[in-house]
Amino acid sequence: MITLRDIDPQMIANNIAPSQPIHPGEMIKDEIEYRGISQRKLAGQMGISPSLLNEILNGKRSVSTEYALMFEAVLGINAEIWLKQQYRYDMQKAKSDKSFLKRLADIRKCAAAL
Protein backbone atom coordinates (compact mmCIF):
# COMPACT_ATOMS: atom_id res chain seq x y z
CA MET A 1 0.00 0.00 0.00
CA ILE A 2 1.29 3.48 -0.91
CA THR A 3 1.20 6.16 1.78
CA LEU A 4 1.82 9.90 1.57
CA ARG A 5 5.34 9.29 2.89
CA ASP A 6 6.08 7.31 -0.27
CA ILE A 7 5.15 10.23 -2.54
CA ASP A 8 7.60 12.95 -3.49
CA PRO A 9 6.19 16.19 -1.93
CA GLN A 10 6.87 17.98 -5.22
CA MET A 11 4.39 15.66 -6.95
CA ILE A 12 1.45 16.48 -4.68
CA ALA A 13 -0.92 18.83 -6.53
CA ASN A 14 -1.02 21.43 -3.75
CA ASN A 15 2.79 21.64 -3.77
CA ILE A 16 3.29 22.06 -7.50
CA ALA A 17 4.24 25.61 -8.41
CA PRO A 18 3.02 26.96 -11.74
CA SER A 19 5.76 27.40 -14.33
CA GLN A 20 5.18 31.14 -14.48
CA PRO A 21 4.02 33.02 -11.39
CA ILE A 22 0.95 35.17 -11.90
CA HIS A 23 1.20 38.73 -10.65
CA PRO A 24 -2.01 39.91 -8.98
CA GLY A 25 -2.04 42.87 -11.36
CA GLU A 26 -2.79 40.47 -14.22
CA MET A 27 -5.82 39.18 -12.36
CA ILE A 28 -7.02 42.69 -11.56
CA LYS A 29 -6.51 43.66 -15.20
CA ASP A 30 -8.66 40.71 -16.30
CA GLU A 31 -11.33 41.69 -13.77
CA ILE A 32 -11.59 45.31 -14.91
CA GLU A 33 -11.61 44.27 -18.57
CA TYR A 34 -14.43 41.81 -17.83
CA ARG A 35 -16.37 44.59 -16.12
CA GLY A 36 -15.69 47.03 -18.96
CA ILE A 37 -13.96 49.55 -16.70
CA SER A 38 -11.18 51.63 -18.27
CA GLN A 39 -7.85 51.93 -16.50
CA ARG A 40 -8.21 55.71 -16.52
CA LYS A 41 -11.63 55.55 -14.84
CA LEU A 42 -10.43 53.03 -12.25
CA ALA A 43 -7.35 55.12 -11.48
CA GLY A 44 -9.58 58.17 -11.00
CA GLN A 45 -11.86 56.28 -8.63
CA MET A 46 -8.84 55.11 -6.63
CA GLY A 47 -7.21 58.54 -6.59
CA ILE A 48 -3.99 57.38 -8.24
CA SER A 49 -2.39 58.22 -11.57
CA PRO A 50 -3.25 56.08 -14.59
CA SER A 51 0.46 55.37 -15.10
CA LEU A 52 0.77 54.02 -11.54
CA LEU A 53 -2.26 51.79 -12.04
CA ASN A 54 -0.82 50.58 -15.34
CA GLU A 55 2.45 49.63 -13.61
CA ILE A 56 0.50 47.55 -11.08
CA LEU A 57 -1.64 45.88 -13.74
CA ASN A 58 1.44 45.02 -15.81
CA GLY A 59 3.34 43.55 -12.88
CA LYS A 60 5.95 46.30 -12.70
CA ARG A 61 4.84 47.38 -9.22
CA SER A 62 3.69 45.27 -6.27
CA VAL A 63 0.20 45.33 -4.86
CA SER A 64 0.81 46.88 -1.43
CA THR A 65 -1.63 46.70 1.47
CA GLU A 66 -2.87 50.19 0.64
CA TYR A 67 -3.43 49.37 -3.06
CA ALA A 68 -5.14 46.09 -2.13
CA LEU A 69 -7.54 48.00 0.12
CA MET A 70 -8.20 50.49 -2.69
CA PHE A 71 -8.96 47.64 -5.10
CA GLU A 72 -11.27 46.14 -2.47
CA ALA A 73 -13.11 49.46 -2.14
CA VAL A 74 -13.55 49.96 -5.87
CA LEU A 75 -14.05 46.36 -7.04
CA GLY A 76 -15.60 44.78 -3.96
CA ILE A 77 -13.03 41.94 -3.93
CA ASN A 78 -11.43 41.25 -0.56
CA ALA A 79 -7.99 42.86 -0.20
CA GLU A 80 -6.57 39.67 1.30
CA ILE A 81 -6.97 37.91 -2.05
CA TRP A 82 -4.66 40.44 -3.73
CA LEU A 83 -2.18 40.39 -0.85
CA LYS A 84 -2.00 36.60 -0.77
CA GLN A 85 -1.53 36.49 -4.53
CA GLN A 86 1.28 39.07 -4.26
CA TYR A 87 2.90 37.00 -1.50
CA ARG A 88 2.73 33.81 -3.58
CA TYR A 89 4.08 35.67 -6.61
CA ASP A 90 7.01 37.11 -4.62
CA MET A 91 7.83 33.73 -3.03
CA GLN A 92 7.76 31.92 -6.35
CA LYS A 93 9.94 34.57 -8.00
CA ALA A 94 12.48 34.36 -5.15
CA LYS A 95 12.50 30.55 -5.20
CA SER A 96 13.16 30.49 -8.92
CA ASP A 97 16.04 33.00 -8.81
CA LYS A 98 19.15 30.83 -9.13
CA SER A 99 21.57 33.48 -7.87
CA PHE A 100 19.39 34.11 -4.82
CA LEU A 101 19.12 30.37 -4.14
CA LYS A 102 22.92 30.12 -4.26
CA ARG A 103 23.14 33.00 -1.80
CA LEU A 104 20.72 31.21 0.53
CA ALA A 105 22.78 28.01 0.29
CA ASP A 106 25.92 29.98 1.18
CA ILE A 107 24.15 31.57 4.15
CA ARG A 108 22.97 28.15 5.35
CA LYS A 109 26.55 26.80 5.13
CA CYS A 110 27.84 29.73 7.19
CA ALA A 111 25.04 29.36 9.73
CA ALA A 112 25.68 25.60 10.05
CA ALA A 113 29.34 26.30 10.83
CA LEU A 114 28.46 28.49 13.83
Rank of each mutant, 00 (worst) to 15 (best):
A43C: 04
H23C: 13
P9L: 12
E80F: 09
L104G: 01
R5N: 12
I22T: 15
Y34D: 01
Y89G: 09
R5P: 00
I37Q: 07
A111L: 11
C110P: 00
Y89H: 15
P24V: 03
A68Y: 04
S51R: 12
I56N: 04
D30Q: 14
E31R: 02
E55H: 06
I28F: 04
K29T: 06
M1S: 13
G47M: 07
P9E: 09
A13Q: 13
K95W: 03
S51A: 12
L42V: 01
A73N: 05
K84H: 11
L75A: 02
A73W: 02
Y87A: 14
I81E: 10
M46Y: 03
Y87V: 08
L53N: 00
L69T: 03
Q39L: 07
G47F: 03
S96E: 10
S19W: 09
D8T: 10
P21D: 02
G25H: 04
L114V: 06
Q10W: 05
L53P: 07
C110K: 15
M27F: 01
A105H: 12
L83K: 10
E72M: 06
K102W: 05
N15K: 08
I81F: 15
V63S: 05
N54I: 00
R40Y: 05
E33S: 00
K98Y: 02
P50C: 11
L83Q: 09
G36W: 03
A13Y: 08
D30G: 08
I56L: 14
V63K: 05
E55G: 01
T65I: 13
L75K: 04
